[in-house]
Nucleic acid binder design. Structure first.
Lengths: 232, 232
DNA sequence: TATTAAATTATGTCTAGACATATCTAATGC
DNA sequence: GCATTAGATATGTCTAGACATAATTTAATA
């Protein structure tokens, strides 16, 4: 006998099972919250929590008055941890090393200003650095920081601490956009990452904002051995 | 006067603001649920919901007895939509085309079996196909399907419908692993994607399971113009 | 003193009931 | 016929109170 108390987890997993095993078919209307609450011997709020989690995960679609149905085209989404290079390296059990290449305040090229949606050409802090795992180049970072939003950035040296870690403590963000792509290594990138020019590299780009104000644009280049893995 | 009724959204956003504006500093202990409930004039359950959302988003860390504190190293996570190639192409306003290259049941190479954690060498359904956007090659798909779990796969022709779409309707999955990387195009990939061998390509790999049973392994190759974008 | 047991505390979850809100259906009035 | 209005209904959210659970502190015991 299932002496298990009704918990939103139990209920969620059972409903998940019914969807997976096609007891509840895609597109089909499932029983209402009250009926399910009766079936599972739980309060409606508990069933509601289970249903909302499944809806959030994309396997159910809910509409007021219309009821809840199994998603026909489950627009499932996966999560990935926003990569923080130091943790990433240390989590693999490797020794993290950081090397500053350059740090200057300069007039940003138009492309950069455009990506940050800055109307006028602006003076930005430009930081270039290298992250190493067990003394092997792991990531080349090319970053632009908007000192209008982060005034402290003008005075930071970034000699001992990467701009990534520094920004975490100095400029929280409210929005971000991530882009991942493959590219061919430029001569400079190849030299820094100890690969040949034209070799494929895995590139991540991140722009962060505080409300509408652009904070930083970072370009992260990895040798092609890099893999970005995530589970669902 | 804030006549707004206390809602978990209002409370969540206000707390989010306090964190962003450093009223609540990273690492600091924030008031307990009861105190916050009193402050916002809401029930503890409502405050709890707001706090749980922020904890789920990674900006708060909660521990029983110890209380809630602002995450010191906000392990923020971003979501990305699981790419469904047809939708992806049509969403851009391009014309989707599908082209089957081959479909055979064959003894899978050891590498493939290993990745699917199949102990014995197995007969798998091997499908190779091309997805085009406005008649330009967009993605080369190389897929292995486990007929032990999806028996229908033996009889599917995949002539008119890509295995991706077909599987959505025939084999739901409970777990998935995604890998993204950069690689150099092989001769075959180059020919199909109309690029030169050795050119960088963006590769996505996906393995899906139903419980512990591996369903399918798919290798998706894009020319380097491809970008995977996601917002937070 | 070292170990174990009990009390404490903040979060985690559940319940029953209430009202809010979106949306569909049917009745009403012109 | 058509637009408006009034139910009906399923989900969305909130409340107050209760008990569960994890982690820590304090007290009791060997």
């Amino acid at each position: 006998m299932s002496t298990e108390r009704a918990s939103f987890r139990t209920i969620r997993d059972e409903m998940s099972r019914r969807i997976a095993e096609r007891i509840w078919l895609p597109g089909a209307l499932i029983p209402g919250e009250e009926a399910l609450a009766r079936e599972f011997g739980a309060a409606r709020a508990t069933v509601n929590r289970a249903l909302q989690e499944l809806a959030r995960a994309g396997v159910l679609e809910r509409k007021r008055r219309a009821g809840t149905r199994v998603a026909l085209h489950p627009v499932r989404e996966a999560r990935f941890i926003i990569p923080r290079v130091r943790q990433e390296i240390e989590a693999r059990g490797s020794e993290y090393r950081y090397q500053l290449l350059s740090c200057e305040e300069e007039l940003a090229p138009e492309v950069i200003c455009a990506r940050l949606s800055l109307r006028t050409a602006s003076m930005l802090v430009h930081v270039r650095c290298l992250h190493l795992a067990d003394r092997v180049p792991y990531q080349f970072e090319d970053r632009w920081i908007n000192p209008q939003v982060v005034p402290d950035a003008k005075f930071a040296t970034f000699r001992d601490m990467g701009p990534n870690e520094w920004l975490v403590g100095h400029a929280p963000f409210s929005n971000a956009e991530f882009t991942f792509m493959a590219a061919a290594a430029s001569d400079e990138e190849a030299g820094l990452l100890q690969i040949r020019p034209g070799d494929p590299v895995f590139v991540g780009e991140r722009i962060t904002w505080m409300r509408a104000e652009p904070i930083t644009l970072v370009h992260m280049v990895h040798p092609s051995s890099h893999r970005m893995v995530t589970q669902l």
